[in-house]
């Protein structure tokens, strides 16, 4: 079994994407033997009113029975845009969203913004995971119209501290993973999973030792990134770094437990 915990539909305004629909995603999953995928709509980054993007994703998933079986939708919620509490409620109760997705860099708020903290607490109370990406694309190559800021792993600590009993999915770990002992302890003590798509996952064997094998899961960040590198980092681990049981945790076991599938 294989579960991709980081994938998208929708458009990226500065670059043409392929396979960025539910149909395209399902074809890719079939090609590579991926059984289930966590998906959010990229349009939710760029629409001022993110709820349109959530509705789009919901409608697309409901257009084909196969989609609903294999696609796990996450709602993009912007907690500094009016009506976000209602959006959250609608996504949870009517649109079948299984988690929420934050985009603080693009939506221009900090993780310790009171509304963000309130949103994450709401997610915790309704047992929904909270996903966020350290970056969406490489700022070096993106457009002059795009944001330049990227996060390192340390930058998400404020929200981990504010709502330590929430569940967090940390995606595209592309920048520094350097942490003090105290910060590392926060990561260890939080119900948190990092996906394997980011470029700083290159020494995954060492990271398993540092953070714990339960902290990682296969993710692609596709179609923004390629569809194979996230899995290659797992499959290329030597037996002494990860035996078959551990690899299965990374392929599907950890995320299945985390998402309560």
């Amino acid at each position: 079994m294989l579960i991709d915990c980081n994938s998208y539909v929708g458009h990226w305004p500065f670059r043409q994407l392929r396979g960025n629909t539910c149909r395209g995603l399902l074809e890719r999953m079939e090609t590579y033997g991926v059984d289930m995928t966590v998906v959010s709509n990229l349009n939710g980054i760029f629409y001022k009113n993110t709820q349109h993007a959530n509705q789009e994703l919901h409608d697309e998933i409901n257009s084909d029975k196969r989609f609903a079986k294999q696609i796990i939708p996450f709602a993009v919620i912007n907690p500094v845009y009016s009506g976000w509490q209602t959006d959250f409620e609608t996504c949870r109760t009517k649109l079948g969203m299984k988690g929420i997705r934050l985009h603080p860099i693009h939506h221009r708020y900090e993780l310790d913004h009171p509304n963000c903290i309130e949103l994450v607490r709401m997610a915790r109370d309704y047992n929904l995971p909270v996903a966020m990406s350290l970056r969406m694309v490489d700022a070096r190559t993106s457009s002059w119209l795009d944001v330049e800021k990227e996060w390192s792993l340390r930058d998400i600590i404020p929200i981990l501290k504010e709502v330590p009993d929430a569940r967090f999915l940390v995606l595209n770990v592309a920048n520094s993973t350097a942490l003090s002992d105290e910060e590392l302890q926060i990561f260890r003590n939080t119900n948190l999973i990092m996906d394997t798509s980011g470029r700083n996952m290159n020494d995954l064997g060492q990271m398993l030792s540092q953070f714990g094998q339960e902290k990682f899961a296969f993710g692609t960040h596709a179609p923004l990134l390629d569809s194979r590198t996230g899995l290659l980092r797992i499959e290329a681990l030597r037996d002494q770094e990860a035996d078959t049981k551990t690899k299965n945790l990374l392929r599907f076991g950890n995320i299945k437990r985390f998402l309560k599938l």
Partner: peptide, 13 residues
């Protein structure tokens, strides 16, 4: 130096 990305990108292409 980006071994995984470069091999993975080739295999995905």
């Amino acid at each position: 130096y980006s071994f995984y990305q470069s091999v993975g990108g080739m295999i995905a292409a």
